[in-house]
């Protein structure tokens, strides 16, 4: 699994750097130092193409999925309340 490999490489590198410098392992990863640049995975190749526009698409789709779930759940709750109100409260005399 390429992902696990890269994790191991990064971890070992972080440990090396932590030993040789004062900065923490966490810092060294973000300092843009000698992070091993293995060739991009297939997924990364797709996501980084065209100025990374696909990353924005992924974010927007996640938000849209969330909004859709919200709308559907609202409809379900609304239906439940409509049913219980229809059972308990008779039609108002003054027809709306």
């Amino acid at each position: 699994m390429p992902h696990m490999n890269s994790q191991i490489i990064q971890d070992s590198l972080a440990t090396d750097q932590a030993a040789s410098t004062v900065s923490t392992a966490f810092d060294s990863l973000w300092a843009g130092g000698d992070i091993p640049t293995q060739s991009l995975s297939r997924m990364e190749q797709v996501m980084l193409a065209d100025d990374k526009i696909f990353v924005v698409l992924a974010v927007v789709l996640i938000i849209w999925a969330g909004i859709v779930v919200l709308l559907l759940r609202n409809d379900k709750r609304l239906r439940d309340v409509e049913r219980s109100v229809e059972e308990r409260i008779p039609d108002p005399e003054d027809e709306l």
Partner: peptide, 21 residues
């Protein structure tokens, strides 16, 4: 249209329960 329809339904419920829509 979806949100508007949901709100109309809520408003109708409110009328039925409180006589005020």
């Amino acid at each position: 249209w979806i949100v508007y329809t949901q709100r109309v339904r809520i408003s109708l419920l409110k009328y039925r329960v409180t006589q005020d829509s």
